[in-house]
């Protein structure tokens, strides 16, 4: 059975800057999120993973501009292109279709409003028929759901700890039972124990409510544990896409390999940690050919001339794609990338 898609991103291109020479932050990114699935997006900071989800939700702040592509959301009434929605349509669709938990737990809550008000105002905006008491009841329910005492509805954000604030954000995201939940590095500001608890909570909620999740993080080992599929991004492009278990067992792109070996694995045998030499490229001055070639341990001469497209792996594994010239026919994969 082929799972149904919920969110399809096709050829999404994003520029930063309005001037004569904008930075091409995303260059033709395509991704599909299926129903009930957890899709992980990983990559170093600045690779465009946050840009991707912000652009797909049209929340990217200026000077970001979407310059091409489409984002199809499969709602109950068939697919719609988010990029072609009017403001009113977009406003009405938001939070019902896709809810987001943002990076900064500290700043995601309006400091001058009580938690309850911020939980209920989205409900009020989307369910104009609901009564005040109903909304309040729902807010209490949501707080309980994420393990916060319902009395905290009266609290101001500054009276909550960082972990509690992020839980409130998750509760808020659940308010309208969205089809897609986007988590943008939701736990970076929190300590490891808290990270764990919050992630477990989200996954438990997913099992119960059946929404799909897009999970963005730079921590690949964490992703491998929770995600079904993983997309690895580098310099505004996807370089590898595969099932999480596959990526963990056998990365096919030298960058994925490097990324995977920069984090200690959470389970299984220990392996030597090795960072990736060099630093992410300047998007304003991308190297010619493969953007990763200057840092790539396996780079060949051709890599500086030819830009690799996302395509099947050398072994032609189903559902797996990689953007690396090593996988073109007639080449032998280095030992690190072959089984």
């Amino acid at each position: 059975m082929t799972p149904e898609p919920v969110l399809e991103i096709r050829d999404l291109a994003v520029d930063y800057g309005y001037g004569a020479s904008p930075v091409h932050a995303l260059r033709g990114v395509s991704l599909t999120l299926h129903k009930g699935e957890v899709l992980g997006i990983a990559g170093e900071s600045g690779c465009g993973k946050s840009t991707l989800v912000y652009a797909a939700t049209r929340l990217l702040p200026p000077p970001g501009v979407i310059v091409g592509g489409e984002v199809r959301f499969h709602g109950d009434d068939g697919p719609v292109d988010i990029l072609r929605m009017t403001d009113q349509e977009l406003r009405a669709a938001r939070w019902q279709d896709t809810a987001i938990v943002f990076q900064g737990a500290m700043n995601s809550l309006n400091p001058v409003y009580r938690v309850g008000r911020q939980l209920t105002d989205a409900i009020a905006a989307h369910r104009p028929g609901s009564s005040r008491a109903e909304r309040e009841e729902r807010a209490r329910e949501l707080l309980t759901m994420v393990g916060i005492a319902p009395e905290r509805i009266r609290a101001f954000p500054h009276q909550l700890s960082g972990g509690m604030r992020q839980r409130v954000m998750i509760a808020m995201a659940m308010a309208l039972e969205p089809k897609v939940l986007i988590l943008d590095e939701p736990t970076t500001a929190l300590d490891v124990v808290m990270q764990r608890q919050i992630l477990e909570q989200v996954m438990e909620l997913r099992d119960r409510l059946g929404f799909s999740v897009v999970f963005i993080t730079h921590d690949v080992s964490l992703l491998i544990e929770v995600a079904d599929h993983i997309a690895i991004m580098y310099a505004g492009e996807i370089v590898e896409q595969a099932r999480a278990s596959e990526v963990y067992r056998q990365p096919r792109h030298p960058y994925s390999h490097g990324l995977l070996h920069s984090f200690p694995p959470l389970h299984g045998p220990r392996r030597p940690l090795a960072g990736i030499p060099g630093s992410p490229p300047d998007l304003q001055a991308l190297p010619s050919g493969c953007p990763f070639s200057p840092r790539c341990p396996e780079a060949m001469d051709v890599c500086t001339d030819v830009h690799p497209d996302l395509g099947p792996t050398a072994a032609a594994e189903p559902g797996r794609r990689v953007a690396c010239l090593l996988h073109t026919e007639g080449r032998t994969l280095p030992a690190s990338l072959s089984v």
Partner: peptide, 24 residues
């Protein structure tokens, strides 16, 4: 961030503008 969150929640423009941005 909280202004972006308010927009992400699909609140009416006036509410985001006055309740979230201007209020702070």
């Amino acid at each position: 961030d909280y202004v972006t969150v308010a927009q992400a929640k699909g609140l009416p423009e006036r509410q985001v503008m006055f309740g979230y941005a201007a209020r702070n």
